[in-house]
Computed example of a mutant assay.
Amino acid sequence: MKMTMNYARFLNKISQARQPSPIRVLTAILQQSPPSMISMAGGMPNVGTFPIESASFKLVDGSSLEMDSKLMKQALQYCPTPGVPDLIKWLKGLQEKQHNIADQFSAGHTDLLVTNGSQDGICKAFEALVSPGDNVLIETPSYPGTLAVVKPMDCKLIPVQSDSCGLNPNDLSNIMSKWSPSDAQDDKSDIPKVLYLIPNGGNPTGHGLTMERKKEIYSLAQKYNLIPYVSSLLSMDVDGRVVRFDSFSKLISSGMRIGTVTGPKPVLDRISLHMQASVMHASSLSQVVLCRILEQWGYEGLAEWSEPSGGMFLWLKLSVPDTYELITVKAREREVLFVPGSAFTMDDTHPSQHVRASYSTCSEEQMNTAFERLAGLIREEQMKGS
């Protein structure tokens, strides 16, 4: 059941008092203006004075990333606070595919910001939503970086227990039973407004939520009007109460400091205004390089597979039309052996996207190396087809 959200209840006084920076607004306008636009309004430096003209990056799979003069000028210049437009477009497309939220984006209910790593987004979200004296629900054990943000905020942290299946909704329900759902409509009530949890690959536990628990937790968030900070409940968010944080630190580079925040536009507008007053925007250079890498890789990823329930084989579906030549010729040239999927069909001349991998005799290090080589081949095939 969809509920109407009153975001003013969640935003603290400092966040509500923030106003747009006129210079930052002009930067966004100029980025979207035609080349014929003459601007004498902004504070942008002349890109002709920058010392870097172009760059070439060699990726670990053997492919290269070329940044010509035009792209480099964009990478070295200021960009809009939400992020480089091409990267924003790509990331929104990813969220739409993964979480089925195209309608929320198109209707303007949901938005996305690029931040200086997910830590920056988490910090600014807490600083927008938490006031002194607030009760804040925190999964325990929890990520130390989050605790470093909220501990000094003069709020009361309420630990919610987790186990091997992630945050325990029964414990959350017991904690919230102290309040009535009607308290969520009372501005003077001390009922918690924010729940922080890590639903996938928790730090330090490594645990993740089951689908059943996700549903239970979201139902409790609706009942008690909570905004949960989660990274995998976005697809079931019918109210606009989930704030999702993503990071490219482990996937691409921790030093690039690129993360994203996706969630209800009224909340993200406040985070954006905070960014205007603090960092202005995440590194343009990092964003442009990341965007080029992601565009090169595409949305679909490299492979699909299911965890084996027994035996000694892994059956993979690759993002190529046919695996025969890739496996029997090109993979062998890279000194790695798999079996093409056509070997397991009635008609071995029929194209197959599948590959069989045996893990019975390889060490973990050898398996990692083998799949790195296979991934490099798949990316090369994708680049040829693009």
Rank of each mutant, 00 (worst) to 15 (best):
S231W: 02
A184L: 11
G133H: 00
M3P: 00
Q276T: 01
Q382M: 13
L294H: 02
G42V: 02
G117Y: 15
I101L: 08
R257D: 14
K2G: 09
N200P: 01
Q185M: 10
P51A: 13
S363K: 11
G259M: 06
D187G: 01
S33T: 05
I52Q: 13
P264Y: 02
M153A: 07
V60S: 15
S272Q: 14
F245G: 03
E335N: 14
I138Q: 09
K223I: 08
K97A: 12
H274Y: 09
Q74K: 11
Y359S: 04
I138N: 00
E307K: 09
P159S: 03
G208I: 05
K223N: 11
M44V: 12
Y224N: 06
T49R: 08
S358M: 07
M346N: 13
S272N: 08
Q16I: 02
C165Q: 11
V279T: 12
V279A: 07
K73T: 04
S69C: 05
D269L: 09
V267C: 05
K2F: 10
A28G: 11
L337F: 14
R18Q: 15
Q161H: 12
M312Y: 11
S56T: 12
L137E: 09
A28F: 03
S15G: 10
I217Y: 09
T323V: 08
A375K: 01
L374F: 13
S36V: 02
M236F: 04
G201C: 02
D171M: 01
S189E: 01
K124P: 08
A282W: 06
I122N: 11
W179Y: 15
L268G: 12
V149H: 12
P20N: 05
P20T: 01
G93D: 01
S232C: 09
G310C: 05
T323K: 02
R373H: 10
S219H: 11
G83P: 11
N225D: 15
P80V: 00
D237H: 10
T349Y: 09
K215Y: 05
S249G: 14
P308H: 05
M40Q: 08
K97M: 10
K250L: 14
A370E: 04
P22D: 06
P204M: 10
K193Y: 06
P264T: 01
S247T: 15
T369S: 08
